[in-house]
Design a protein around this nucleic acid. Structure first.
Lengths: 338, 338
DNA sequence: CCGTTGTAATGAATCGATTCATTTGTGAAC
DNA sequence: GTTCACAAATGAATCGATTCATTACAACGG
């Protein structure tokens, strides 16, 4: 249990009686070193408590063993799951993942991109918030590629991994119809969010195909509180003009509706059914388990990281690709047919 | 919008017509450079798109601008909140926080400590899982101090920031008594977890002081599913031998109980009241909002990071301190008195 | 015995920013 | 006019690991 402070490669070489080059080889290409010297070096490393200096390593070799990941909100379980998937892949490639939180703030987003650039990460996984695509392109031209996560690249300048929200919206609404809804409603907003727009469009189209009108309750955000608020106004409506089922643009909103309905004495699903979107853990853990549209979160992270490594490893021959997952519905009690 | 690839400090110096030392000064001590040269340098930096190489910087200067943080489970909202608090403080000190997930796995924990050591982080925030205290001490002796998070240091070798779980347990139980419980129960385990042990002891002592017996339902873990399972067996008991209130060791467990009781037709809080621990967001977002014992999560992270910087900045004179927060109860509908 | 081939090992040069001892320049003081 | 103080600027040395051209040596064939 040695505790010498700050041994460096040179010291190891001296103690083992070999050259610095040999020590470096033991660290990086152990198969090219004779068994005898290798074990002498390893013994010396152990005795001195030598830890290799990553700064020096990456300065000389020109490459860091790390990826940067920039998400909109670390507190959102969706993103931690995606990050988990990405981290697993990074680990397989012996890279580490630096997770950063733009917190839906353009300045922070820029600052973290600065940081990633300074740290010379090998690549970036990002759910863009502000207007950063142009910057990402110049970063790629300087050798730092990026992959868009949870956002379809409209250009073919990037790889992206996303989910087909239109299909998800259609699935959700079809499900409501299949359990007997004749007066469905959509709750969500703002429509400037592509995902809200897509989920609504999918649902509206599905309703139209069935010859049914989809009522709309537009909201300025997707938070729990907002759901409770909208829920209160829905509960106040006369039974004959009240929706018999709602599709909420995400689970937070859906949980808010659920709480409000419970507080207002509406029975779910008998009086009104609810389907959410994202299938966060708490959807299934609610008192009345929530039906939700599920996205393969870890898989999204894994594929994104996979694409990124493709581009890192094969820079010239790389062809950008857009991976789009189709979400699936998980039926639970909140839409159980009576 | 320049796109030259890989400009380095020397290039900037050449373009601005100054020495490399001056450019470095503009970057690090701008007040020591004349206004004229400073602006010439800044213009050159801009024109070349120069980004300083952090590896080279920290190799030469011997210090990185980063902290490592190692938590038990990034998917647990408790830890993301703590991390958020720590990150804010790190940002104030112009440091970045590298967040890693030991996932309650000793090997991963060791691997991340290796990584932190190689990256020469300035300090470490850690919720230890395996037996790492000894290693942390040798790391400190090599210049990397650490602070224990959500865990009271039993030695005075470390700073720590934690919560008084005994007091929290007592508060929870007193609350149940105050709303009229005469047959309370505790649900939680394993008792090898210090936190479970403490919360139970606090509750048991409070019950004893009131001359009331605290029933115990021990569990092998603290997960949602487990709560549902225990809830089912509690619901099967005869009304006269069934607890009239339960204190769950954490919110996951409490939510499981809640779901089970709802499914079994027990009314909360009329038939049985519930109090949880942690006050995660979803506690308040449940259909029946959950009373819970709340820990100042972000504050924990902030204080921990603060103590760490104290030690980093003032290595010789630093005295370790143990910060212990007292949690507080947030009463909601699940214990509303009838 | 010489030449060839291949494996191990060597160590000086290198990555790019920072540091610091030194030089240059300016103005004030005498 | 000389000295002194002080600010500004310089550039060579440096951090520590990696790289790669070179050397050392052994084995083998002819």
């Amino acid at each position: 249990m040695p505790s010498a402070a700050g041994a460096k490669l040179k010291d190891v070489a001296a103690l083992a009686g070999v050259s610095v080059g040999t020590v470096s080889n033991v660290l990086n290409r152990p198969e090219q070193v004779s068994t005898e010297k290798r074990s002498r070096v390893l013994a010396a490393i152990d005795e001195l408590g030598f830890v290799r200096n990553e700064s020096a390593r990456s300065l000389r070799s020109g490459s860091t063993r790390s990826l940067g990941m920039l998400v909109l909100d670390v507190r959102n379980p969706f993103f931690t799951d995606v990050a988990l998937g990405a981290e697993n892949v990074a680990e397989d490639h012996k890279h580490s993942l630096i997770l950063a939180n733009s917190a839906e703030d353009s300045d922070r987003e820029q600052a973290y991109l600065d940081l990633f650039e300074q740290q010379r990460v090998q690549g970036i996984l990002i759910t863009p918030f502000g207007n950063v695509l142009e910057r990402l392109e110049t970063m790629r031209s300087r050798g730092i590629p990026s992959v868009l996560v949870d956002r379809l690249a409209r250009t073919d300048q990037f790889c992206s991994v996303s989910v087909d929200d239109v299909a998800g919206g259609a699935t959700a609404l079809s499900h409501l119809l299949s359990v007997g809804s004749v007066r469905p409603a959509f709750v969500g907003g703002p429509f400037t969010l592509q995902q809200v727009e897509d989920r609504y469009r999918g649902a509206a189209d599905a309703a139209e195909r069935a010859g049914i009108r989809l009522q709309l309750f537009e909201t300025p955000d997707l938070k729990f509180e907002r759901g409770r608020h909208v829920g209160d106004s829905i509960a106040k409506l006369q039974p004959n003009e009240r929706p018999d089922a709602v599709f909420a643009a995400n689970d937070q909103l859906a949980l808010g509706l659920l709480q409000s309905f419970a507080a207002n004495g509406l029975r779910v699903p008998e009086d009104i059914a609810i389907v959410g979107f994202d299938d966060i853990d708490f959807a299934s853990q609610s008192s009345i388990p929530l039906t939700s549209v599920s996205q393969p979160r870890q898989l999204i992270g894994e594929r994104a990281a996979g694409l990124l490594f493709d581009e890192i490893d094969d820079e010239p021959g790389h062809v950008h690709s857009q991976v789009v997952f189709t979400p699936e519905l998980v039926a639970r009690q909140s839409t159980r047919r009576g």
